[in-house]
Amino acid sequence: MVFFQGNTCCHHCFAQKGFTGKDIAASKIAPKSTIYRITKNFKESGSIVVKKASGCPRKSSKRQDRLLKLIQLRDRGTTSTELAQECQQAGVSASARTVRQRLLEDDLVSRRAAKKPLLSRKNIRDRLIFCKRYRDWTAEDWGKAILSDESPFRLFGASVKKLVRRRQGERYHQSCVTPTVKHPETIHVWGCFSAKGVGSLTILPKNTAMNKEWYQHILREQLLPTIQEQFGDEQCLFQHDGAPCHKAKVITKWLWEQNIGILDPWPGNSPDLNPIENLWSILKRRVDKQKPTNSDKLQALIIQEWAAISQDVAQKLIDSMPGWIAEVLKKGQHCKY
């Protein structure tokens, strides 16, 4: 008997009646390729059971595979070639390709390491304290906060790896090259935003370091108008990180005098808790896409593209805060942003 996907077909009956493989396929019992394969196998071996191909014998045991996985998890940066050498020292003849196949079976895929600020034990503890304090805040609660930050913009200094499509011999074609300079001109920018949209943005004068005097000037000239425009007389909270100029006594006193509440205690080395980092990424992609060639064009594009960021984008970033808080609460480690 020959079976096709649950339908029984008597091969001898078909043969006795003079049916060919083509005739059987025409009956649509199963796909044509399946019928021909089963018929061929039956004629050659007298059975419809397909024998499993022998293939190359597995070079490592399950125990050795588990050991390989543990070595990789102990040091995620170990390459497949280095792991293969360790296996050979242990008496297991395995190539780098074999090692990669074993790791893929455990879903261990090679990827570029994410770059994140180093977290000390104190950083982790402070992150947990902060997140526990605001764990019950809803997106609506976060909608009453204004988040702020500074960020550098570099001319010809895009950090994102650019991919291009090129033909053979076009590696150094002008359209396939990303220009770089040894000391790219850097523009420092301060900005703030809330669920109501982006707020004020200011570009620091060239060769000007952010100090408490400059910071107080920015808060007075940029933050206050933003609060008035977005919140009016409604109470809101202001967020800034623990930079020395932010924590200066004169700044703390000035904010208190202006009746501006602070979102505290903001943990150190925690840009992943501030969605303005996403806003900077969006802004930098938009600016880089237009390929500014000098400092004036770069500044103009920064201001232009900042103003073009929609309120919907700002709202979505603020709405994501409860999820980030919940993720950090698991271990205090980095979260995806």
Results as ranks from 00 to 15, higher is better:
residue 2 V to E: 00
residue 5 Q to N: 09
residue 14 F to D: 01
residue 14 F to S: 07
residue 16 Q to W: 01
residue 19 F to G: 07
residue 25 A to W: 01
residue 26 A to K: 04
residue 30 A to L: 09
residue 31 P to V: 14
residue 34 T to G: 05
residue 37 R to H: 02
residue 42 F to M: 06
residue 43 K to P: 12
residue 44 E to M: 02
residue 47 S to F: 00
residue 53 A to P: 11
residue 59 K to M: 12
residue 60 S to K: 02
residue 62 K to W: 07
residue 66 R to W: 06
residue 68 L to K: 03
residue 68 L to G: 09
residue 70 L to P: 00
residue 71 I to P: 00
residue 71 I to G: 03
residue 77 G to C: 12
residue 78 T to K: 02
residue 79 T to Q: 05
residue 80 S to R: 02
residue 82 E to V: 15
residue 83 L to I: 07
residue 83 L to Y: 07
residue 92 V to A: 09
residue 98 T to A: 11
residue 98 T to C: 13
residue 98 T to L: 11
residue 99 V to S: 04
residue 100 R to I: 13
residue 101 Q to D: 11
residue 102 R to F: 07
residue 105 E to L: 13
residue 107 D to P: 06
residue 110 S to N: 09
residue 111 R to I: 15
residue 111 R to L: 14
residue 113 A to W: 04
residue 114 A to R: 09
residue 114 A to P: 10
residue 117 P to G: 03
residue 119 L to Y: 03
residue 122 K to D: 09
residue 122 K to T: 13
residue 125 R to S: 13
residue 130 F to Y: 10
residue 138 T to M: 03
residue 139 A to S: 14
residue 140 E to F: 06
residue 141 D to A: 04
residue 141 D to I: 05
residue 145 A to I: 14
residue 146 I to H: 01
residue 149 D to L: 06
residue 149 D to P: 00
residue 153 F to I: 00
residue 155 L to T: 14
residue 161 K to G: 08
residue 162 K to Y: 04
residue 163 L to V: 15
residue 172 Y to F: 12
residue 177 V to M: 12
residue 179 P to R: 06
residue 181 V to F: 03
residue 186 T to S: 10
residue 186 T to P: 07
residue 188 H to K: 08
residue 189 V to R: 01
residue 190 W to I: 13
residue 191 G to Q: 00
residue 192 C to N: 06
residue 192 C to H: 01
residue 196 K to C: 08
residue 196 K to A: 11
residue 203 I to L: 13
residue 205 P to L: 09
residue 206 K to N: 10
residue 207 N to F: 01
residue 209 A to D: 05
residue 214 W to A: 10
residue 216 Q to A: 07
residue 217 H to F: 12
residue 219 L to E: 06
residue 223 L to Q: 05
residue 223 L to G: 12
residue 227 I to R: 07
residue 234 E to W: 01
residue 245 C to H: 02
residue 247 K to F: 06
residue 249 K to E: 11
residue 249 K to I: 15
residue 252 T to L: 12
residue 257 E to K: 05
residue 259 N to M: 09
residue 259 N to I: 13
residue 262 I to Q: 08
residue 266 W to Q: 01
residue 269 N to A: 14
residue 273 L to M: 14
residue 276 I to Q: 02
residue 278 N to T: 08
residue 284 K to C: 11
residue 287 V to A: 02
residue 288 D to H: 01
residue 291 K to A: 09
residue 291 K to H: 11
residue 292 P to M: 08
residue 294 N to W: 04
residue 296 D to H: 07
residue 299 Q to C: 14
residue 303 I to V: 15
residue 312 D to Q: 08
residue 312 D to A: 14
residue 319 D to C: 12
residue 320 S to V: 13
residue 322 P to F: 14
residue 323 G to M: 15
residue 324 W to Y: 10
residue 325 I to A: 08
residue 332 G to H: 01
residue 335 C to T: 15
residue 337 Y to E: 11
